[in-house]
Simulated scan of single mutants.
Amino acid sequence: MSVLLKAGHLHDRDLIDVFYNYENNETLELKSKRILTNNMHGTGCTLSSALSAFLARGYDLNEAVCKAKDYVNNAIVEGANYQIGKGHGPVKHFYDYWNILLSSK
């Protein structure tokens, strides 16, 4: 069984998620900087959905995990500064779509 360990609840500035791929006995370290924001709600569900989507698109396990991690990280960065209601908000799931829309105007 392959396993992805997330570092999001740790308190370091640099985060290292660890992915163990059972299929090839390989371990990947996925590094990122902590983004200071209240908009982190649903990151685990977003990550698992992105991973499933990349696998469904035919990426191998390592590629899918890396692409899913990049997607979630970008969604956090893009959604870091907006305010929706009170408390913890969601990441900006459709950041790429909005960037394409805004650049075409």
Rank of each mutant, 00 (worst) to 15 (best):
M1V: 12
M1C: 08
L5G: 05
K6Y: 06
K6I: 09
K6G: 03
A7D: 14
A7Y: 05
A7N: 08
A7G: 12
G8T: 12
V18I: 15
F19S: 01
N21F: 11
E23K: 13
E23D: 14
N25K: 14
E26I: 14
T27V: 15
T27Q: 05
L28Q: 09
L28C: 03
E29Q: 12
E29T: 12
L30N: 05
K31H: 15
S32P: 00
S32E: 14
L36N: 14
T37Q: 05
T37G: 05
N39W: 12
N39A: 11
N39R: 09
N39C: 07
M40H: 13
M40D: 07
H41K: 13
G42A: 10
G44M: 11
G44T: 10
T46G: 08
L47E: 03
L47W: 06
S48A: 15
S48F: 15
A50P: 02
A50N: 04
S52W: 09
S52R: 06
S52L: 11
S52T: 13
A53L: 12
F54S: 02
L55D: 02
A56I: 06
R57D: 09
G58V: 07
Y59S: 00
D60I: 05
N62M: 00
E63S: 10
V65T: 05
K67F: 06
A68Y: 03
D70N: 03
D70I: 05
D70K: 05
D70L: 09
D70Y: 13
Y71I: 00
V72S: 01
V72I: 12
V72T: 03
N73Y: 15
N74K: 12
A75W: 06
I76M: 04
E78G: 00
E78R: 06
A80Q: 08
N81V: 05
Q83I: 15
Q83Y: 12
Q83G: 01
K86R: 14
K86M: 11
G87K: 08
G87I: 12
H88F: 15
G89S: 11
V91R: 02
V91S: 08
F94L: 08
Y95H: 04
Y95L: 01
D96T: 04
Y97G: 00
Y97F: 13
Y97S: 04
N99C: 04
N99K: 13
S103E: 14
S104Q: 07
K105H: 03
